[in-house]
Amino acid sequence: MKIDPELCIACEACLPYCPMAAISMKDDVAAIDEDECVDCAVCLKSGVCPVDAFIFEPAPWPRSVRSTFSDPRTEHKETKIAGRGTEEMKTNDVTGRFQRGWVGMGCEFGRPCIGTRFRDVDKVAQVLAKHGVEFEPKNPVTFLMEDPKAGKIREDVLNEKVLSGIIECLYPIEKFEEIMNALKEVSKEIDTVFSVEVINRADPDGSYPLRKMLDKMGIPYYINGKQNVGLGRPVANV
């Protein structure tokens, strides 16, 4: 994203809109720090600029990943899903992706409010790979891995900054404690934040075995969350 300095009238109205705080005043006009900009297009699409000074031209690879990972209105070519992740548990009643006895896990890098470079995503993905997780093949971050078995993200995107990128993976519930410990350790080595989520299929009585494990292990979790209520058809055998 760029600002045309010839058009900018220095009203400063756009400055607070940038989620990465990448817009500032330079030489009496608003300017974008292109290295910090994630091409989310919030500034442009907000319509805040009274003189239409924002210019967005699709970037070549590897910078093109910034827009696809940062603007949820952009559909990923590979997954055909807008946003940064997949349908995950939202359609589990139909897809059967998360079976009983398994844990789905997501690590959402850069969120909230900070953004991430792929080098931090890479660091955590490689640790998770060593513990035998299965990366979700339809997840956009998995598409960036040159070796999904090792969790290694391709070199040319490591310095690209995005609003957020999600690692999605699956593992047997027996590995939960081991994975949590590994994640805790590697989280000390990265330069951004990440939000962690875990997915679990309900037992026939409506309870969630993973919730019992979280309570037993003393792992804190939010009082709020997401529940699929099983209205999708055809019903998956899950």
């Binding site: 009643d93 900070i114 931090d120 990440f194 962690v196 989520e197 969630y208 969350g225 529940q227 209520v229």
Partner: peptide
């Protein structure tokens, strides 16, 4: 709400919060 509507829990997603360099957060 689910119970009053006569539906059943299918799958849940729990948030384990924010990890990493949390000192950067607002």
């Amino acid at each position: 709400c689910i119970e009053k509507a006569g539906l059943k829990h299918h799958t849940a997603n729990f948030s384990l919060g924010i990890w990493g360099k949390t000192e950067k957060l607002p």
